[in-house]
Design a protein around this nucleic acid. Structure first.
Lengths: 197, 197
DNA sequence: AGCATTCTCAATCAATTGATTGATTGATCC
DNA sequence: GGATCAATCAATCAATTGATTGAGAATGCT
């Protein structure tokens, strides 16, 4: 679970360029406005070259979904998480998310577009569901640990609380106030929600 | 603010049919797969007739957004909310949302698609932002009232907590467990988050 | 260097798409 | 009944779209 896909040596640069261009265009125009010619133009190649490397538009969508999954995996392997207390673990989760809000905003737009497409495209769904389940399980684990060690409320339901964390974080950009200051206030409030009084 | 748009007597039935068909198709295929011919087919009219009533695709998108806003207003006027305690007010919010999860699931899909489109379409944004702000303010108001009357925690931040409620509710369908039972568990956990210990 | 494979391109294809045109029908009013 | 306006339709348009073809260039291997 959660392994990055393999790539042959020669094509990987071109495919990476194509994936990056597609992500950038999805962030700007959504899947609704995604055109293969626009992608080729952005990479600086001919449309037929795009089709040589990525034969169909559906292959392209799959490539983008895999590319996002690869990023997700990297993110989760980037910081050692052993030895952190449940409270610090939750803080870490917020800090990671905030960092992406600041410096990788396209990631969210593309993730959201993929999320909507997942509803009607089984291949996208197959990429996204394991990521969602993994993230949820991670959060539920340390919430449970926090409840059990007494740092979080004794009546906390870890599964439900994990859904609250995820929903709140991913929904933060859709709020009427999408500022980072409000995001910080939300995170502080979530900590108060879970802390043992 | 939050008034339903007016309609001339003869066209309103046709426009309503068109809006309903468009919503249904958006729920199935997203904006990505929305085609004017498919809408005309679903209504049972010719494509030229569709253009007679709704001249451009952008007009159609606006019509759908207005239609959603009208529904939102109706929902908020349907149940009297005066005299409820803050805790019951929050419960009411959860019950209303759950009812839609059960019986009007397309509404969410269309709202989500509009939400993504709002990022790149100012007209959609102009319809959605007041709704978001209104909903957020409503929730923040009764959370504040609950904090002030002692039923919610004294350190509760109403603005942040409202964002948590909204993010959690709207994110509930995207979770790895989208069941109604899990939704109920989430709502119970949110109540525990806010209640005064 | 020669051969095989990979990669690139311009031109092209067939189908689709939002939209238009002009004729006709339906409804209303005097 | 005739005039006017609203509504409808089949046919059509121009542009776009995902994709293909065939030739040639670039790369890798012996």
């Amino acid at each position: 679970m959660l392994e990055a896909p393999e790539e042959t040596p020669r094509q990987d640069n071109r495919k990476q360029d194509i994936a990056d261009a597609a992500r950038s265009l999805i962030a700007e125009r959504g899947f609704e406005g995604l055109r293969t010619r626009d992608i080729a133009d952005r990479v600086g190649i001919n449309i037929a070259t795009l089709h040589y490397h990525i034969p169909t538009k559906q292959d392209l969508v799959r490539l983008v979904a895999e590319s996002l999954r690869t990023d997700f995996v990297r993110q989760h392997q980037r910081r050692p998480r052993q030895g952190l207390s449940p409270v610090d673990r939750l803080r870490q989760e917020f800090a990671d998310f905030r960092e992406n809000l600041e410096s990788n905003i396209d990631l969210f737009t593309v993730m959201a577009e993929l999320g909507e497409r997942a509803r009607r495209d089984p291949e996208v769904r197959a990429e996204l569901e394991p990521m969602r389940a993994y993230w949820h399980a991670q959060i539920a684990d340390f919430l449970k640990a926090g409840r059990d060690d007494g740092s979080f409320r004794g009546d906390l339901d870890p599964q439900a609380a994990a859904s609250i964390v995820i929903g709140t974080l991913t929904g933060s950009r859709r709020q009427s106030d999408p500022s980072l200051a409000h995001f910080d206030a939300i995170c502080a409030e979530l900590l108060r929600c879970f802390q043992n009084p």
